[in-house]
Design a protein around this nucleic acid. Structure first.
Length: 280
DNA sequence: CCCCAGTCCTGCGGGC
DNA sequence: TGCCCGCAGGACTGGG
């Protein structure tokens, strides 16, 4: 499930397109229900063709190709989407081909098993409306400790649920929220308005630490094997998971507590009840 | 403001 | 062995 580290890994592979012209988009339709492509491929191609790729950025959990003329190609992988430059895990879930430049250019494929993701071409206004600051908060790797506290500390929500709110902070998903709170030794059910200053400091530091390390390891590939980097190789951060999907096993920090699984906002949360506290 | 359940979609694995 | 059902959780929506 691509979160910030996985999407950042995709972005780095796609950065090869910087300085090239967008050349073509092709639909590789499989028999499955098609993903959302907006506008339809022929219009997409006509509007984007020949435009220079000024930069390849990340907006939370989306890869954004910024084209000249104010256009943006926004790739949103959601649960099972991948951007590849090599052979895909299989052919039947290939959805789209994106070509940049000429002979020595870049061809990228969008692959998506469940098909919940999307690829969209947005103009400036559409981009602002759909991914502007009122829809997407500051990036989890860029905001300061004080910004993080300021954006969350008045809320009565539980901290784990609040970390998933992309309007508050962009990029953290279900897996890394558990990992961050375990490293920070903060209970996932702690109410934001009862989290102490020292705990905010630890949450902020842990956010940077977990996400940066996960990027170094090129993200997490879980047991279902879905996530791959652009060369179709698995990530390695799953080998460093502290709590995620490890219910019943001993806590890697205190070694005495067992990792528990609970459900918050219809999602699994993993934590250690002996080292993660609601207040301090 | 916030919470919850439902929606999209496919493949896997548990249970019988 | 085979089939069905529930679950995985990204983002979003509508109702309370």
């Amino acid at each position: 499930m691509p979160e910030l580290p996985e999407v950042e890994t995709m972005r780095r592979a796609m950065a090869e397109a910087e300085g090239l012209q967008f050349a073509n988009v092709k639909s590789l339709r499989c028999r499955l229900k098609p993903i959302l492509i907006q506008p339809p491929v022929s219009t997409f191609r006509r509007r984007a063709k020949g435009r220079l790729v000024r930069s390849v950025d990340r907006a939370g959990k989306r890869v954004v190709f910024r084209l000249e003329g104010g256009y943006h190609i926004v790739v949103e992988p959601r649960m099972t989407g991948l951007l590849l430059v090599a052979d895909p895990p299989n052919k039947e879930h290939l959805r789209l081909q994106l070509d940049f430049g000429r002979d020595n250019g870049l061809s990228a494929w969008y692959w998506d098993r469940r098909g919940l993701g999307s690829v969209r071409l947005l103009n400036t206004d559409e981009y602002q409306a759909q991914l502007g600051p009122h829809r997407l908060g500051p990036d989890a790797l860029k905001l300061t400790r004080e910004q993080m506290r300021e954006r969350l500390h008045k809320s009565r929500r539980e901290i784990k649920t609040a970390l998933l709110d992309q309007r508050a902070i962009a990029g953290i998903g279900n897996l890394y929220a558990s990992e961050i709170l375990h490293l920070a030794r903060v209970h996932p059910r702690a109410r934001c308005d009862r989290v102490s200053g020292i705990q905010w400091k630890r949450i902020h530091r842990s956010t940077i630490e977990v996400l940066e390390t996960a990027i170094e390891y090129e993200g997490s590939t879980l047991a279902d094997g879905t996530y791959r980097n652009a060369l179709n190789s698995p990530g390695q951060y799953q080998n460093r998971h502290r709590v995620y999907d490890r219910a019943g096993r001993p806590c890697p920090s205190c070694n005495s507590g067992r990792i528990r699984r609970v459900v918050q906002a219809q999602r699994s949360t993993f934590y250690c009840s002996s080292c993660q506290k609601k207040a301090s």
